[in-house]
């Protein structure tokens, strides 16, 4: 409710509301953008364009619960557009690369209490790597940004049922590769992950 009134204030040209909305979403947008493309400069440019766009077109802005998701969707489209013009190629979805390095980083940051935990981490990492980009994006939106399914659907421009299925399939794939990995490691315990 409060969030919506903030958007209404923004629509009426309230600068304070803009700055509040900005500081509320900029970090999440940045984090999301980085997952789509590792170049932080490009991500910042695109965030700037997203905000400038909604400011310039605030009269047309429709305020619903999904308005925040619209920010993410715009960023995603902007980034895809940029990458497409940059690489001068179509089929951009394949071009979108999630930087694995960043995911590794976050894994290292976690305090690992035991060898067992470290072992689980490695398996999880490998499981996540086996996902497609699209699936990984869905997992990121659901569990890192903690978006609801209708928001995820809005961002990915699909319907809610598809978003739900996408997340479910991704989880299933992770699960399968986790327990498959365990089997492989049981067979060759001396080939333990380094």
């Amino acid at each position: 409710m409060e969030e919506k009134s903030l958007w209404y204030r923004f629509k009426n040209g309230d600068d304070e509301a803009l700055s509040l909305l900005y500081s509320q979403y900029v970090h999440e947008l940045f984090s999301y953008g980085l997952r789509i493309h590792g170049d932080d400069q490009l991500v910042k440019d695109c965030i700037q364009e997203v905000f400038v766009h909604i400011i310039d077109h605030k009269n047309k802005l429709i305020i619903t619960d999904l308005t925040p998701a619209y920010l993410f969707k715009s960023l995603r489209n902007k980034l895809c557009e940029e990458l497409r013009t940059k690489n001068n190629r179509s089929g951009i979805i394949k071009q979108i690369s999630y930087s694995e390095i960043k995911f590794d980083d976050s894994m290292e940051q976690l305090t690992v209490n035991s060898e067992e935990e470290l072992y689980r981490r490695r398996i999880l990492e490998a499981a996540l790597a086996s996902l497609s980009n699209y699936q990984r994006e869905a997992i990121f939106l659901k569990y890192s940004q903690e978006f609801s399914y209708d928001k995820i659907a809005e961002i990915l421009s699909v319907d809610v049922a598809s978003a739900r299925t996408l997340v479910y399939r991704s989880l299933k794939k992770i699960k399968e590769s986790i327990f498959h990995k365990i089997l492989v490691l049981f067979c060759f315990p001396f080939l333990k992950y380094k």
Binding site: Y22, S23, S31, K44, L110, L124, S144
Partner: peptide
């Protein structure tokens, strides 16, 4: 255990924009 680890790994994922960049970007916007 895997579910917990999976969830935690994702939660700590968030990258933040540095203070200066946040202010600068806003100014540019």
């Amino acid at each position: 255990l895997y579910a917990i680890d999976f969830f935690k790994a994702n939660l700590t994922e968030q990258k933040r924009l540095s203070e200066e960049d946040t202010a600068l970007l806003f100014q540019q916007i």
